[in-house]
């Protein structure tokens, strides 16, 4: 840590900030474990993007990517994801200050904007399905539905998690357990923005070129 800067560091005896009597740092252990879990989740998306890259042009005489994809709507969805992630960032800044109402208010903003994203996506796919554009129609549609709805399902679970955390913050305050869960939810929620960048660029935009 910065307090050690410039001091000589003796191997084996240097005391890190987290040397409690338990001998390990619970929050760092939990967030690092969850980060590894998110990276393995990213491998699922890598597999889905690979499937899309292989099957994305198999239209089987059905609608093409250019006919199905609406990049303008996807740009609005992009901004919704980014804004929700930004609001969750503000919730983390409030957490840093120990402001309970700040955390709850910004998490509510993140929830509402995230829910708007999910609503747009549900509307988009209900519209496609009502026109007979369903996943079993072609390889392209199977891959497209799977990848976008897998991301959408992540968003739904993120919203659920936010609701649970709002209850825990109200009930328990900022205990060690609540704090590490909020840090993990931040990793989870911000991760959805990175995945969405890839969905927007490699599916909606590449399919519209």
């Amino acid at each position: 840590m910065s307090s050690h800067t410039g001091e000589s560091v003796a191997a084996g005896t240097t005391v890190l900030w987290d040397e409690g009597h338990h001998g390990h740092d619970m929050i760092s252990t939990r967030t690092f474990g969850f980060w590894l879990y998110m990276l393995s989740d990213a491998m699922i998306f890598a597999a889905l993007f690979t499937a899309y890259a292989v099957l994305g042009h198999n239209y089987a005489g059905g609608p093409t990517a250019a006919q199905v994809l609406r990049p303008g709507d996807a740009l609005v969805e992009t901004m919704l994801v980014f804004t929700s992630v930004l609001a969750f960032g503000f919730a983390m800044s409030a957490l840093k200050q120990g402001h309970r109402t700040g955390v709850l208010n910004w998490m509510t903003v993140a929830f509402v904007i995230g829910a708007a994203f999910v609503g747009m996506e549900v509307h988009e796919f209900a519209n496609l399905a009502s026109h007979g554009i369903v996943p079993e129609r072609s390889g392209f549609l199977s891959a497209y539905y799977t990848i976008v709805l897998t991301h959408g399902l992540h968003m739904v679970f993120g919203l659920l998690w936010m609701a649970v955390m709002a209850v825990q913050v109200l009930r328990d305050g900022f205990t060690e357990n609540v704090v590490y869960r909020l840090l993990n939810l931040k990793i989870f929620w911000h991760f959805q923005a990175i995945i969405w960048v890839c969905v927007f660029a490699f599916i909606y935009l590449q399919g519209s070129i």
């Binding site: 840590m1 900030w17 740092d25 929050i27 760092s28 967030t31 960032g89 503000f90 983390m92 800044s93 957490l95 840093k96 120990g98 900022f174 205990t175 060690e176 609540v178 704090v179 590490y180 840090l183």
Partner: peptide, 13 residues
């Protein structure tokens, strides 16, 4: 105080 954890303190508006 878990709020003093460095990962909480990383937050930056």
């Amino acid at each position: 105080n878990p709020l003093h954890h460095p990962e909480v303190q990383l937050a930056s508006t």
